[in-house]
Amino acid sequence: MDLVAIVDFNLVARYGGFGKAARAAARPKATLSRRVAELEASLNVRLFERGARSLKLTEEGRALFERTAVLLTELDEAAAAIASGGRNPRGRLRISAPLLFSQTAMGRLAAGFAMKFPAVRLEVTTEDRAVNMIEEAYDLVIRVNPEPDAALVGRPFLHDRLVVVGSPELLRPDDAPVPAVVRGPIGQSTTWEVATASGKASIPVNPMLGLSSMMMVREAVRAGVGVGRLPLSLVSHDLSEGKLALWGDVEGPGTALWALYPTRRLLSARVSAFLDYLREAFPEGTPDELAAYVGR
């Protein structure tokens, strides 16, 4: 099998078209098209479905891309490690991180890492969805309470928990649900189960405001429109300064942020360096540690 043809096929698959791939790699479009056609002929399969304005991987093309993309990445990383003596992380590092963590901590983390490792070209995108690391060419993903995935390995580096908080001026009515701010669409009246210093309690709530991010929920709760369920790290300073009052800890499993990478991919110096940087930033991985980091 022609390795150059495999490289060109991966280039086209990654950019989703011959024109885009040609512009990105400064290669003739006709050359890429010929290489892919020769590869299809040698394998006796169609790798792309070619439309008038679109190019999509076939099932066989997707399988080939998922397998060979990893191998080509490892070859590039091995060559880079040898060229640099295996000591200094270098090259592009693509990371996907969830919205709230990106808004509160990722900017500072990325800046510090970039200054410490100037030979690494760091790219961070914000995604709450579970991205496909292979197809979308990510080296590392940060996920909240991820589902088990045999294709990924990693570890949690931060833990948090949800608490119910409200403005100190907001009183809990004796015979009616309390107004609430929720993330997402407004639902029907419900009950939030919490743990308090005196035991378990039930808080009947009537969602009055639905917002799309935790940061927006916090601002609305601060304004006094209702109670909200928020990560402790996000409201820790407000609680200590008396700007918000704690109504209780939400019952159930807490929140864990995981750093994950593909099991089939050799751990590159770039990914290893970023994992070490996370450990240095959050050695204990507690909500208070995240709150202190964000507060700085």
Rank of each mutant, 00 (worst) to 15 (best):
34 R>Q: 12
147 E>V: 14
2 D>Q: 08
215 M>A: 13
26 A>I: 05
219 E>K: 15
177 P>Q: 07
109 L>R: 12
139 D>C: 11
163 V>R: 10
26 A>N: 13
24 A>F: 04
85 G>W: 04
261 Y>T: 12
140 L>V: 12
210 G>D: 04
115 M>C: 06
209 L>Q: 11
258 W>G: 00
135 E>K: 15
151 A>E: 10
201 A>P: 03
59 E>S: 11
132 N>I: 11
70 V>H: 03
180 A>N: 07
39 L>G: 03
185 P>C: 07
296 R>F: 06
166 G>W: 02
164 V>F: 03
240 S>C: 04
43 L>N: 01
101 F>G: 06
238 D>F: 00
105 A>K: 00
157 F>V: 14
184 G>F: 05
102 S>R: 13
80 A>N: 02
79 A>L: 15
294 V>N: 05
172 R>E: 07
259 A>Q: 00
114 A>P: 04
77 E>L: 10
119 A>N: 02
126 T>Q: 11
285 G>R: 12
129 R>D: 12
131 V>Y: 03
284 E>Y: 05
189 S>H: 03
137 A>G: 05
108 R>T: 10
262 P>V: 12
242 G>S: 10
147 E>T: 13
66 E>H: 13
109 L>T: 08
7 V>W: 08
217 V>D: 00
213 S>F: 08
214 M>R: 09
19 G>Y: 15
266 L>Y: 11
255 T>A: 06
135 E>N: 08
258 W>D: 01
1 M>Y: 09
284 E>G: 03
103 Q>I: 13
239 L>S: 09
232 L>Y: 08
256 A>T: 02
32 L>M: 02
195 A>G: 09
78 A>C: 07
255 T>G: 03
82 I>Q: 07
233 S>E: 01
54 S>N: 02
14 R>P: 04
249 D>P: 00
63 A>T: 11
57 L>N: 02
154 G>H: 05
16 G>P: 08
213 S>T: 15
155 R>C: 02
269 A>R: 15
122 L>W: 01
24 A>I: 02
74 E>N: 11
173 P>Q: 12
152 L>V: 12
138 Y>N: 09
295 G>T: 10
57 L>R: 05
192 W>N: 02
139 D>I: 11
1 M>A: 13
92 R>S: 08
206 N>F: 12
53 R>A: 15
131 V>P: 07
275 L>M: 08
4 V>C: 03
173 P>A: 11
33 S>R: 15
1 M>S: 11
207 P>W: 06
229 R>G: 14
216 M>K: 15
244 L>F: 08
105 A>V: 01
243 K>D: 05
80 A>S: 15
143 R>L: 15
165 V>H: 05
259 A>I: 14
144 V>F: 04
32 L>A: 04
176 A>D: 07
177 P>E: 03
181 V>E: 01
85 G>I: 13
128 D>W: 02
76 D>S: 10
44 N>W: 07
223 A>W: 05
72 L>G: 04
104 T>M: 08
158 L>M: 09
293 Y>L: 15
289 E>H: 04
91 G>E: 07
97 A>D: 01
276 D>T: 10
186 I>Q: 03
267 L>A: 12
197 A>Y: 01
82 I>P: 01
15 Y>W: 13
217 V>G: 01
74 E>V: 14
120 V>Y: 02
189 S>F: 02
166 G>Y: 01
123 E>W: 03
166 G>K: 08
283 P>M: 01
166 G>E: 06
113 F>L: 14
233 S>P: 07
